[in-house]
Design a binder for these strands. Sequence first.
DNA 1: GTAGGTGCAAACCTTTTGCAGCATG
DNA 2: CATGCTGCAAAAGGTTTGCACCTAC
Lengths: 149, 149
Amino acid sequence: MKLDQELGIVEAQLRRTGFRWTNQRSLIVRTALGSHEHFTAEELLELCRRSDPKVSRATVYRTLAVLEQAGFVEGLDTGDGGRRFEHVLGHEHHDHMVCRLCASIFEFRDDELERRQEAAAKKLGFRIERHSLRIHGLCRDCQRAGKDR
Amino acid sequence: MKLDQELGIVEAQLRRTGFRWTNQRSLIVRTALGSHEHFTAEELLELCRRSDPKVSRATVYRTLAVLEQAGFVEGLDTGDGGRRFEHVLGHEHHDHMVCRLCASIFEFRDDELERRQEAAAKKLGFRIERHSLRIHGLCRDCQRAGKDR
DNA sequence: GTAGGTGCAAACCTTTTGCAGCATG
DNA sequence: CATGCTGCAAAAGGTTTGCACCTAC
C-alpha cells in the first residue's frame, strides 16, 4: 500500500469522526506513516521539524493521542518509563522482543498465542481492547558479543 | 511461606551479591512483601513512612531497582506512563488483564502461552530474561455496568 | 576505616495544560 | 464565523542524581 493511499485512509477516517484535517496533522501523519521504525514522540517531532521547523511539541503529542485512539498508531511502553509508537496501517498485529543491550526491537507473531489470550479473557469475561506482549532479554548478536555481564 | 522466611531469603541473596542489609532495606522489603497489591513506588513510600516517617523517596526508588534486578520484584507499565510493582516471591509467574475503567488488575496464567513465547524466542536466537503480557480492555463488571462509551 | 547507603533538594525527562491567536469547515 | 487546532511556555508527574553525612561490615 502506498503512502498517499494510507494517508487518504487516515484523513477520511478522522474527518468522518469529526476531526479537522490541518497541515500539521497531514505532516505528522505522513511522517509517522513514512517511518518504519518504532519512534518516540520526541523523534517524531524532530522528523516533522525537518519539514516544518515550527511544528510544536504539543501538537505532536496531541496528534499521537488522536491517532492512537483512532487505532492508526500503537504505543508500546519501553519498560524504562518511555514510550515508542508504531503505525499499524498495513501491518498485521505482532509482538515484540526488546534487547536489553542494543535496544533492537524484533517483531514476531504467533496465531496460537493470540488464540490463547482470547481464550483466557473469555474465561474471565474480560473484553479485550488491545494487548501487548513484550519479551525482554538479549538478542543473538549481543549474546555472541559476550557483552552480557 | 511466611513473611519472615521470605525476608530471610531476600536478605541472604542480597548479602551474597555484595549488598548491605540496612534498616531501610529491611523495612522496604518487608513492606513490599507484605503488600499483596500491585503498588506504585509512591504508595510503597507512603506505606513505609507509616513505620518510619523519614524514609526517603530516593531510597525507595533505589531499593526497588535493586530488588527488580535481583528478581524479587517485577515492574509493570500501566500504559499511562506510570509503573506498578509486585513482589514475585512465592508467586508463580503470571500475566495481567487491566480494566480501562475500574483499573482492576486480573492475573492469569497459561503454560502453553509460556511455551509458545520460548519457542518464538528460540527461533530468533533471543535469550529471554523476562517478559510481560498485558491485556487491556473491560472487565466483566464494567461491561455489565454498561459504562463503556 | 572504607565502601556503600541514605536523605535532601534540585535536576531531569516526558507529557499535559492554559491561553491567546489562527485556520478549517 | 464558530469551533477546533496550534504554538508557546509553564506546570505536572514520576524518577534520578549530586552531595555531604552516616553506618554496616
